[in-house]
Amino acid sequence: MNVRFGVTFGGCVIATLLGASEAAAAEPRTPFPAHAALDAVGGSPAKGAYVLSAQGGWPFSFLRAQVGLSDRITLQSELESAVGRRYRPMLGIGVRLAEATHVRLTGEFLAGWLFQRSEEYRRGPNGELRFRLAIPVRRFVPYLVLGTRHAFLPDLLTIERASGTETSWSLRHEWTPWATLGLGFAISRGIGLDLGINYGWVGAPDTIALPGVHLGLHFGGDR
């Protein structure tokens, strides 16, 4: 499995960067002030701009859409899947906290629902607070995402007594600290790629989680 993974991963990386270097050869002479790759990995596209992202990987894959409502506020929706057995549809806002020539810092808050189909079903409301730090250098955008996710899993207890049936609910908490370290690349102003390493410690601190990797394709533009 390791061999297959190594070859696949290496192949993806090589193919991506070969494509990128060809694109670089054909790039326009003016650098991109803002581009889809930056908006995707750094968050908070400007007012009127949007970016659609598809990131495929193991174990996490993502579909994400972001629309700039103002120069600082972004509306976003996201669907995350872990190996096709755990899904998180989310809706939220992003706030551009800092912006400079080579830095963009975004805070994001999302809320949604968790659906996990496994030996133990996990379903319930889910929220996430995360920060994106992107450092655009021409076409390249190294980025870091740090987040904290919280899911609340409702359990139902029913007690049949002689006097009648009582029901009560309780909630279990699932915490997932999250980190992504990646590199975005602008093929053009409207099309970008990214490659990232994810670590989502699902069920921390009582569990062990494996790190993952994703490759993303991003499309952006103005409304």
């Binding site: 390791n2 993974f5 070859v7 990386v13 090589i14 960067l17 670089a24």
Partner: peptide, 19 residues
């Protein structure tokens, strides 16, 4: 842009082979 991707490709290809 000319040499950086090439160097990266080489490094990553090497790491893929090592894996």
């Amino acid at each position: 842009f000319g040499k950086a991707p090439l160097a990266l490709v080489s490094a990553l290809a090497l790491s893929a082979l090592v894996s």
